[in-house]
Design a protein around this nucleic acid. Structure first.
Lengths: 336, 336
DNA sequence: CTGAAAGCGCTTACAG
DNA sequence: CTGAAAGCGCTTACAG
């Protein structure tokens, strides 16, 4: 592989000058620049990323830490983040934490060791204050997606969970559901709590809230099956189910079909997230879609601003993701 | 961050000696080693990966190029590869080619530029000889998964596609299917061709092969829907469908349900690959499972052998993956 | 506008 | 068994 020295020699200049044109820094005569460009092309020169990183403390790479790539929500996020990163000239490193805070922190260390310029964390984790202060110590720009945090050093974003949940319930009411159940997400996760609040609020407005219509799940497909079976057993009158995420909605459909319930005629169903998977089912499943692609994009762009020191683009601790609207996607499971 | 120089100073030795204990290379007195270890701990020293890579031409990272993380087959592969890589002390970089050879090659260049030690390619691509010679030029150990290639420099692996397909058909026959259709994968892909061959061979044995029972798909869910609708339309007598991959089987189930066909009573269904997704459906879908996790594991281990120069562990061009057996997983769609 | 030189943090012959 | 020194391929003040 050609080095900067080879290019310099061929162009008859010093390596410093070549470096200047590579980085577009400092002045360089147009003609010598042309000469250098030509030499680079001739030698098929590409700068050595490692050497650059060593000298620079910058590697043009960012990392994304997610709970589990096997959860169908995340590939879509990964894709969005990867696309955005590439567009900005960054390479993406990926880490799966398996829903474990320790693993997440360990990955942060690994990535720091690889000198990524910044890290994105999708926090379905519950970082405690000790974890957070550890993340702080990393001293790498870090951006946490979809989680409200109090820590000033770690920016965060979330979507309109409360509002989306309200929309889901009202939609079920609109199509005629009278007994609307909820499969709730894990208590410790902020989005799950918000979605539950939205559900509760909407039903209290019409005087229809019934705590016994709420079953707990853990955002997994299996827990959606279980919760639905319990609901059906306790309350055969239920005619609408709002699952706090799409995966549990999938499980819910499975349980409904297994019990011979007609969907949506006997029981209507809606999820939350908007993953593409929902269209694989018959009937196709309705959902409240969050703009996963846009969120991934925005997260990268914000992270890069952090990297470049424009820390206050959105103001510390502002709820950045509030600018993203959730959207009702009506499909067969709520179309009577 | 502490550097090797800090450690050396604290331990009262030279950086060369510290380097020796880090790399466990050359002789070093047990006592000075202890001193150095202690200093490293005290300073929380971790070697700078970039500097190491520069000096070494080795970064302890490998790359994986896949067609599309959004296809549910791949997260499982990624997970297997990531786990294995970590276990060997390697970090994984990921690239999505979007089924495009150019993108794949571009990623290879990016990764080369990042000095990964090796790259794994899952080739649902059809690399032509020009592409292959380009890959050759990269001069990085490369291992192509699930594809037969003639090129000596690029090792390849595949699973027992022919046999698996035969098993699928025989299974359908065993449960009483008389009119077995096939949704075929893309002609240009080796596994798709092999699976078709297996289907054909099994049916010819009993004199039941009928070319008109074969519809083409492209391994996508949607193509499974379309192919099934065409089959149902042309041949209402069909009572069994073998889809060349799981995603098309999912589409097939969707079409069957939409048309009000009872599965498996009227039409039985089996896929190929063994992705976990299949268990999300009601009824759960049968499949011929390839050991994705084991394959990912083996691919990493082979790649690392290549990196370490043990090129002939399996012999050039041997069909490495032949050691992995496929397995019939009978679920509700083939249980009468 | 351009070049010489030091430095980024390691590794690796080469001496001793 | 250990150290001094050169080298990996860049960038960046500092001079000029």
């Amino acid at each position: 592989m050609a080095t900067i020295r080879d290019v310099a020699k061929l162009a008859g200049v010093s390596v410093a000058t070549v470096s200047r044109v590579i980085n577009q820094s400092g002045y360089v005569n147009k003609q010598t620049e042309d000469k250098i460009m030509k030499s680079m092309r001739e030698l098929q020169y590409t700068p050595n990323t490692l050497a650059r990183g060593l000298a620079n403390k910058k590697t043009d790479s960012i990392a994304l830490i997610i709970p589990n790539i096997t959860n169908p929500f995340f590939p879509e996020l990964v894709q969005a983040v990867e696309d955005a990163a590439n567009r900005y000239g960054y390479t993406l490193l990926l880490g799966n934490s398996y829903n474990n805070e320790e693993n997440a922190l360990q990955y942060i260390h690994i990535f720091k060791n690889r000198f990524v310029d910044g890290v994105l964390i999708f926090a379905s984790h519950q970082f405690d204050s000790k974890d957070l202060s550890e993340i702080d110590k990393i001293e790498i720009p870090t951006f946490v997606i979809d989680k409200a945090l109090d820590n000033n050093q770690i920016f965060s974003a979330k979507n309109r969970n409360f509002m989306g949940a309200t929309m889901a319930v009202e939609h079920l009411q609109t199509i005629g559901c009278r007994h609307i159940a909820h499969i709730r997400g894990p208590e410790k996760l902020f989005p799950a709590r918000e979605r539950f609040r939205g559900y509760q609020d909407a039903l209290e407005k019409t005087g229809d809230f019934n705590p016994s219509y709420v079953e707990n799940g853990d955002f997994s497909m299996e827990s959606g099956v279980e919760a639905t079976l319990r609901l059906l057993d306790k309350h055969p009158e239920i005619d609408g189910i709002f699952a706090a995420n799409d995966l549990m909605a999938v499980g819910s459909l499975k349980a409904l079909q297994r019990q011979g319930k007609k969907v949506p005629d006997q029981v209507a169903l809606i999820g939350y997230d908007g993953i593409q998977l929902l269209q694989m089912f018959e009937p196709e499943i309705s959902t409240i879609a969050i703009p996963i692609y846009d969120i991934g994009n925005a997260a990268v762009s914000i992270l890069i601003d952090l990297i470049n020191g424009k820390e206050n683009r959105f103001g510390i601790n502002s709820n950045i993701m509030d600018e993203f609207e959730v959207k009702l996607i009506q499909r067969a499971t709520t179309t009577k």
